[in-house]
């Protein structure tokens, strides 16, 4: 009985009904946090004395870049759950996160590049963080491509699970090797020296936005998962009941 909280995740119907409620809460919470955080960051946080107003991009860039990486880790957790407990919902989550994660990775790449133009004077620099983010986007793309190529959803899910696990073992190696590669080729001149202390008036809105984007990601992933669950379970009686009632 104490494992009930875990086993109920095996029921797509239970998830579908609960997730609808969670999604609603997450959606409104994220909207409020993001509006507050973004307006605060854009209008009320003090101007950076070195970068000027262009630094205000970080209120979008930093949370999104965090999420892009966290979501890959979340997929790895889902892959472990899929292989250990054969829980199909974990595969649904993996599929939902892959698409959302790719969108966040692309957003973080673009926002990083646009921030680089006024700061470094060019859109693209082979900086360690930009480069590993680019590799991450290729990893996400590979997952989506692999899933699209395999017809049977169960088989596709397992193949993606293997790929995610291999990828997550490699990701730290990729990150460190890219950092090392960066020191190999470039003197530290291009590196943006992060100021040791950011005043609270700057980091509080950043924190609000980080929280907001995390909850927004949860909202998006839950929404995508619900749609996938309905699609995969379309022959189950509870789905027919649900649609018939509506």
């Amino acid at each position: 009985m104490s494992w009930r909280w875990f086993h109920q995740w095996g029921s797509p119907r239970w998830f579908y009904e609960r997730a609808g409620r969670w999604q609603l809460v997450c959606g409104w919470l994220a909207l409020i946090l993001l509006v507050v955080g973004s307006l605060w960051g854009l209008g009320f946080a003090p101007v950076d004395y070195q970068q000027g107003n262009s630094y205000r991009i970080i209120y979008l860039h930093v949370p999104v870049a965090f999420l892009a990486q966290a979501m890959y880790a979340a997929m790895a957790v889902c892959a472990v759950v899929l292989f250990v407990w054969k829980m199909k919902l974990a595969d649904v989550a993996m599929q939902a996160i892959a698409v959302t994660g790719l969108a966040f990775t692309v957003l973080s790449l673009v926002s990083g590049a646009v921030w680089g133009k006024p700061t470094w004077g060019t859109y693209w620099v082979w900086d360690a963080r930009l480069t590993s983010m680019l590799i991450l986007s290729f990893l996400y793309l590979g997952l989506i491509g692999l899933r699209a190529a395999i017809q049977d959803p169960d088989q596709a899910g397992k193949a993606c699970g293997i790929l995610v696990l291999v990828g997550v073992v490699n990701l730290p190696i990729i990150k460190y090797s890219v950092e090392w590669w960066n020191t190999l080729h470039q003197p530290a001149s291009l590196k943006l020296t992060e100021k040791p202390t950011m005043p609270a008036s700057m980091w509080v809105p950043l924190l609000v936005n980080i929280l907001g984007y995390y909850i927004a990601a949860a909202y998006l992933v839950l929404g995508s998962m619900r749609a996938i669950v309905i699609g995969r379970e379309r022959r189950a009686s509870w789905v027919k009941e649900l649609v018939g009632r509506a």
């Binding site: 698409v99 969108a103 006024p118 995508s224």
Partner: peptide
Amino acid sequence: APHGAYVWPVYVLGLLILGGLTWMN
């Protein structure tokens, strides 16, 4: 000034991507 041309498009793109994902779902 002088970075409006960089800051605003990024936020618009962010809005488009979040909205687009919601719409897709």
